[in-house]
Design a protein around this nucleic acid. Structure first.
Lengths: 204, 204
DNA sequence: CCTACCGATCGGTAGG
DNA sequence: CCTACCGATCGGTAGG
C-alpha cells in the first residue's frame, strides 16, 4: 500500500496527490519560501492541491499555524543538530568545524525551511515569536561562545568573536538562497567547504 | 529656510514632518524593511506620515513604484561602489579586500535597503525584476571572477571559487540583519573585519 | 470535500 | 490634502 503522502486518486483526466495535513504543509513550505508568508494566499495553496480554499481547514487550523509549525520544527532541529555535532568533540577547532558543517548542511538540504525562518519569523504573533527568537539566539550564542573560548585560550585569532560568529553563521544561512542541489557540487561538499571557511575565518 | 524633508508644520498639538516624495520613500524604506513589502499596507505608511491613504498618491505613483525605486537605486550603487573600490588596485588580494570592504560597509550603513533587496526583490513585476536580478548577478560575477583569477594564478587557494564568492558576499549581506550602529563596533570596523575574513577565506 | 458567504482590508480612483 | 467609494481579494466560518 502506498504511503499517505504519495497516494493518488484520479480526477477525470488528472491524477492528484492525496490531500492530508502533510501534503498541505509541503505545499505551504514551497509557496511560503517562494513568495513569502504574506505573499502567499491560502487560495494558492488550495489551487496547488486542486481543492477549494475552505477545504484546507480539514487539514489545518489556520494559515498562521502552518508557519508556526515550520518555524518551531526547524529551530528545534538546528539546536539538536548542534548538540549532536559537538557532543564528545574536545578540540575547539574540531567543534567549530563540526557545528558549521551541520548548520551548512541543513541549509543546503532544507532551503525552503531556512528561507522562511530567515524571512518570515517576524510574521508570527507572540508568544511563539519570542520562543523562536530565543532558540535562534541560543544557537548563535553557542557558536559565539565557542569562538570566544578559542580566542581566550589562544586557539583562535579574531578581532571580535561576535562579528566572526555572525559571519560564519550567516554565510551558512545564505546557502539556502543560492545552492542548487542539481548543480555540480553536493550538499555535503558545500557544507565541508563552509566548515573549512569557518576555521580560516578564526585564523586556523 | 528648512530643508524640505525636515520642514515641520503644526497640527493642533502635534508637529509633523512635511510630506513630500522623499518623506514617503523614507517611511516606506523603514516599514518595508520591518514587515516586508507584502506585509506593509499603504494605510500604515499613511498613518506614519499622519495623512490619509489616498493622499499618498500626491507623492507617488503606486506602491510598486516605491519598491522599484529602492531596488534600482541600491543595485546601481552597489555596482558603482565596486568599480570605485577596485579601480586602480592591481593586487588581487587588495582588490578582493577593497571590494568586500565597500560591500560590507554598504550593508552596515544601509541595512533597510539591503534587507528589502534580499527579501522583496521577487515582489516586483517584470521587466524591472529581470533588470535588478541582472545587476545583482553582475556584482556576484565580478567577485567570483576576481577569486577565480586568484585561484588560477596561485594567488588564492580555495576548492571552488563560486562557493567562496557566495560565502564572502553573503556574510556581508547579512550584516544588514544583525549590525547595530549604536553598538560597540563601528560600521567601518565591521567592514574592515569582513574584508579581512574574505582574505582568510581565500587562503591569504 | 463542497457552495455560499462573512467582515475586513487591500491598492487605487473620482472628484473635489 | 480630504471624503467617499471602487472591485478584488484576504483568511476564515456555516452548514451541509
Amino acid at each position: 500500500m502506498p504511503a499517505k503522502s504519495t497516494a493518488r486518486r484520479s480526477t477525470g483526466d488528472r491524477v492528484r496527490v492525496a490531500v492530508n495535513p502533510a501534503a498541505v504543509r509541503e505545499v505551504a513550505l514551497t509557496l511560503f519560501a517562494e513568495r513569502g508568508y504574506h505573499g502567499t494566499a491560502l487560495s494558492q495553496i488550495a489551487k496547488a492541491l486542486d481543492i477549494q480554499t475552505p477545504s484546507l481547514y480539514n487539514h489545518m487550523a489556520s494559515k498562521q499555524e502552518l508557519l508556526v509549525a515550520i518555524l518551531q520544527d526547524t529551530t528545534d532541529r538546528v539546536l539538536a543538530e548542534y548538540e549532536g555535532a559537538v557532543d564528545g568533540v574536545a578540540d575547539l577547532g574540531a567543534r567549530l568545524n563540526a557545528a558549521t558543517y551541520v548548520y551548512a548542511l541543513r541549509h543546503a538540504t532544507h532551503p525552503r525551511e531556512a528561507v522562511i525562518v530567515n524571512r518570515d519569523a517576524t510574521a508570527i504573533d507572540e508568544p511563539v515569536r519570542a520562543l523562536v527568537h530565543a532558540k535562534r539566539r541560543k544557537h548563535a550564542d553557542n557558536i559565539r561562545g565557542l569562538i570566544q573560548e578559542g580566542v581566550e585560550s589562544g586557539r583562535f585569532d579574531v578581532e571580535n568573536a561576535t562579528v566572526a560568529a555572525f559571519a560564519i553563521l550567516e554565510m551558512c544561512v545564505s546557502i539556502a538562497r543560492w545552492f542548487d542541489p542539481a548543480g555540480p557540487i553536493s550538499a555535503e561538499g558545500v557544507a565541508r567547504q563552509h566548515g573549512d571557511f569557518a576555521l580560516r575565518i578564526v585564523g586556523n
